[in-house]
Amino acid sequence: MVALIDTHTHLFAEEFDEDRELAIIRATEAGVTRLFMPNIDDTSVEAMLALCNSHDGCYPMIGFHPTSVDENWKERLGTVEKWLRSEQVFYGIGEVGMDLYWDKTFKKEQMEVLDIQVKWALEYDLPLIIHCREAYPELLEVLEPYRKTLLTGIFHSFTGTIEDAHKLMEYSGFMFGINGVVTFKKSILPEVLKSVPLKRLVLETDSPYLAPVPYRGKRNESAYLVKVAEKLSEVYDVSLSEIGRVTSENALKVFKNAENSF
């Protein structure tokens, strides 16, 4: 069995309320050895910590998602910051980023919130887990001043073009998070990844979302990470064990403070 790391899963979400413990068991049985949990916003921290603080191999992150940015963002982000500055150990700043797919009302505020959290990542020397949907120009505008810094992280759920990939690869401390989208029939990702070396990839599920083929349309879970790894084995024409080895090494380069945790 190949050992894999899920760098992005939301097993604390309500979609798992009926079988959360079983989902963790299934992930372990599938060879998924570590689960990295990005927070969503001020409303999700306690559920995430309840899960991670009671399971080995579960690593919480703290952040404020762009789609949660609203007219009360300062107060809500303040709550998240209090958690960051508490005694709780976190392994990354995320999930953060830009999302203009659903609504552009708070575009300026999203950019400000992202910039604040980039500064947190640098202050705490933690990786930044970046979500971006229909907003690459705005994302790159925020990140540009930090290009020469020691900022590291993951471009989560990367589904961009070859041009997008080349721009993002200039941020040498970042990996590309690849999930079930790579298995979709109409996905351009397998072609785009021909321009991205395997040493820049990490695996993720984004469960409960984006289930890979043959589970597409169903609830996703960390056990399905194997299907993502199998597809990358085809794309890069290397063994499944090589995919597991390289992507796990890449994950632990990003999450430095998780490397020796057990």
Rank of each mutant, 00 (worst) to 15 (best):
M1K: 09
V2K: 01
A3G: 00
A3M: 13
D6L: 10
A13Y: 14
F16V: 03
E18P: 00
E18N: 13
R20Q: 15
E21C: 02
L22V: 08
A23T: 07
I24C: 12
T28G: 09
A30W: 06
G31K: 01
R34S: 15
M37Y: 15
S44P: 04
L49R: 05
A50G: 14
D56T: 12
G63E: 12
G63Q: 08
G63H: 10
F64M: 14
P66F: 08
N72W: 01
N72S: 14
L77P: 05
L77Q: 02
G78C: 08
T79R: 13
V80S: 02
W83D: 10
R85W: 13
E87H: 14
Q88Y: 15
G92Q: 03
I93E: 11
M98F: 03
M98N: 09
D99M: 02
K104Q: 13
T105P: 01
F106Y: 15
E109A: 13
E109I: 06
Q110F: 04
M111H: 03
L114A: 12
D115W: 01
W120C: 08
W120D: 05
I129F: 14
E134W: 00
E138M: 05
E144P: 00
L150S: 15
G153R: 02
F155H: 03
H156T: 09
F158T: 08
F158R: 00
T161C: 10
T161Q: 07
I162H: 07
F174H: 11
G177I: 07
I178N: 04
G180I: 11
V182R: 01
L198I: 15
L203N: 05
T205R: 07
Y209N: 04
P212A: 03
V213N: 12
P214L: 02
G217C: 10
K218C: 01
K218D: 08
R219K: 14
E221T: 06
V235S: 04
I243W: 13
G244Q: 04
R245D: 08
T247Y: 01
K256W: 03
E259F: 13
